[in-house]
Computed example of a mutant assay.
Amino acid sequence: MLPLARQQHSLRLLNSTKQVVRLVSTQPASTTTSHNTGDNRIETIRRVLFESPQRPATTTPLEGEALEQHNTIERAWKLHTMRERERKQRTLEKQFRSLHQAMSELEKTSDRLFKGAIVKSRHITYPKQAKIPTETPSAQGWDYAYKAPTDSTQ
């Protein structure tokens, strides 16, 4: 327990600055946990919330042919991801070259359109422009005056 003067000082800090003050205990960890021996709920809550679950080591070391198969699969996966990354990079480079070519053609064609294409609007950005699809009721609501068409063939 903190001395009374220290408690009052921390309360004055809380009241005057409206900030949370965290006091750190100077006692060793073994003596602080001895107070909670009657009620383990706090420790259980801390363990559940903040500690990662301990899992038993179920993997066995690979040997021989299984290790070779594993390494082959690993190399194939790395090769696949490298090729995918290079393909995406080539696509982006191609798009950039096309954009650059179109902008240079626009600059040759019309200076006014070129300047309009490179100026960014300060007021409108993409997420604000996009209409988010929603499943909301219509603005008109329910039509209470609606009458189903009658079948005149009977």
Rank of each mutant, 00 (worst) to 15 (best):
Q95Y: 03
P28K: 09
T59A: 07
K147G: 02
E63G: 08
K131H: 05
Y146D: 10
T150G: 05
Q95C: 01
I42F: 11
H123C: 03
Y126S: 10
R12S: 07
D111W: 06
F50L: 11
T81A: 05
G64R: 00
R47V: 04
L67Y: 10
L106P: 00
L99G: 10
E135A: 01
V20I: 13
T44V: 09
S138H: 10
Q19R: 07
R122C: 06
S121T: 01
E107L: 03
K18N: 07
T153P: 10
R22H: 12
I124F: 08
K78F: 08
T33I: 07
T72Y: 09
R90Q: 11
E51S: 09
F114W: 12
N36V: 14
T32F: 04
A76T: 07
A145R: 15
P3E: 12
Q8D: 03
P61Y: 08
R112I: 09
G141W: 06
N40G: 13
T60V: 15
K120Y: 02
I132M: 12
L106C: 01
K115S: 13
S52A: 09
F50W: 07
A117Q: 05
L92I: 12
A130H: 04
Y144M: 09
S98T: 13
S121K: 05
Q7P: 04
S34N: 07
R46N: 14
T150R: 11
L49E: 08
Y146I: 02
T33P: 02
R90K: 04
E74P: 00
G64H: 00
L62M: 04
S25W: 15
H80M: 09
K120H: 01
S34V: 03
Q140W: 09
T59L: 07
N71W: 01
G38S: 13
A102G: 04
Q19T: 04
I42N: 12
S52Q: 11
Q7E: 15
W142N: 05
A5L: 03
Q129V: 03
I42R: 13
Y126C: 09
E63Y: 07
Q69Y: 01
Y126I: 13
Q89W: 06
A102W: 00
E86G: 00
H35N: 06
H9Q: 13
L99S: 09
S152H: 14
A145K: 15
R46E: 13
A102T: 04
S25L: 04
R75C: 02
L106T: 00
T32L: 14
L62K: 00
P149S: 00
H70V: 00
T153R: 14
R97H: 10
S16H: 14
H70K: 04
A117E: 05
A148V: 11
R83M: 02
H100S: 15
R6L: 12
E84M: 14
S104I: 03
R22V: 02
S25K: 12
K78Y: 05
Y146G: 03
L14D: 08
L79E: 14
H70F: 15
T60H: 07
G64A: 02
D143P: 14
I73Q: 15
Q140H: 12
L79H: 15
